[in-house]
Structure formats: C-alpha cells, structure tokens
Amino acid sequence: MNIYGIRAIYYFEMARTMRTLMQSIVSPVLSTSLYFIVFGTAIGSRMGTIDGVGYGAFIIPGLVMLALLSQSISNASFGIFFPKFSGTIYEVLSAPVSPLEIVLGYVGAAATKSVVLGILILITARVFVDYSIEHPVWMMAFLILTSITFSLFGFIIGIWADDFQKLQVIPLMVITPLTFLGGAFYSISMLPEPWQTLTLFNPVVYLISGFRWAFYGVADVNIAVSLGMTMVFLLTCMAAIWWIFRTGYRIRT
C-alpha cells in the first residue's frame, strides 16, 4: 500500500478545498440556511406538524441530504475531472499508485469535506430551528455512508465527463429533482396514489427517509430498507469504479 501516495492526493484535495473555502463550504452552508429561514422560521411557523415533527425541523434532514448529495458529487467529480482537463493527471498515472489508492485519496477527501459540510449545516440549522437527534450514531452513519457513496458517484461522473457541461448535467438534471421529489419537503404519505408508489422508485427517498428516522424516529419507509438501499448504492458505485479501472475506461489512452 502506497500510504504516502494516498496522503499526497488526500492533502492535495483538502488544500484545494481550503483555497476555495467560500465556494466549497461557506456558500452551501449559506444557501441551505436560507431554506431554514424561509421554511423553518417564516413559513414553518404557520404550518402544522408532519408525523408529530414541526415543519422547520422536519425539512432539516432532507435539506442536509440535498447539500450532501450535490456537494459530494460536484466536489469529487471536479477533483478528478480537472487534472484530466488540465493534463496534470499524467503524474498520477505515472506514479506507483493503485486504482484503489487513487480512489481512497480523491473520494476520501471529497467525502471528508461533505461530512464536515453536513455537520456545519446542522450546527447552523440549530440557530434557526429547534431540533433534536434521537439516534446520533445512526445519524452519523447515514451522513458518512451517503457522503462516501455520492463522492464515489461523483468520481465516476468526473471520469466519464469529457467537458464541463457533462460535469454539471447529472447533479443539476437528475440529483436535484430527485431530491426535491424525494420527500425533502414532505412526507411521501402525503402524496396521492399513484405518486406515492412511483416515488418509491426514487432512490433518494430511501436516503432521506433513513436520515430523518435517525433524527426523529419517524420514517416513510422501513429503516432497514433505507439502510439496505444505501448499501446497495455504495456497492454499485464501488463495482462501477472497479470496472472502470479494470478496463482503463477513459483514463488511459
């Protein structure tokens, strides 16, 4: 195992995050806070509770998920896309680092950043909305698993993308709608049929539901199913990356 190699990539990526602190941490925290202000305090106070949870508190897990998914993807995809784009990838390719080590470095850094971001958002949310966390260990488990999974997913997009547009199209056109429709702002039991059943095909539902359960002990779908689905996403991404490196797809000419 080339530990120094993993560390080099990891710290390189973390240094990039620190250089772009405004864009990579401050701006997602701020934009998520806007939701808390608008829906949590302003509108939320006029809305009833959902599953016994005040509306402001109810939307927190979903909003954190939204930030986690989009930031994990954009950070991890950019991290590997940019060296490909600028040509500096030559060094990683010519170094004695294995695919696993490359993934650990890039995805590890992206996931770390997402976890930190998630925690910062939760701390900020506490300023505007009063909420509690019933299962803190599970909350952290979902936070970390989701960050890793979607950083892996972002890494795949970064390898697949050969221009900036492709880099943005999936987060914007797929992930954001799926999150908004995945129960970030409502309980899916509030939906009429057939939407309630159709929604179950939206993978983000399971992530948000599981995460919300960790906070308030209420969930749209069984917690075991949520956890299972999260693991399935994680394993799918790992398998995809394994395949990419095995075939050299879009990495080596």
């Binding site: 120094y4 190699g5 080099a8 990539i9 710290y11 060094e91 680092v97």
Partner: peptide, 8 residues
C-alpha cells in the same frame, strides 16, 4: 512535495 509523496 506532492510528487514525492505520490511516488511513495
């Protein structure tokens, strides 16, 4: 220094 680390 990054390069040195990368090469283990």
């Amino acid at each position: 220094n990054f390069s040195r680390g990368l090469f283990g």
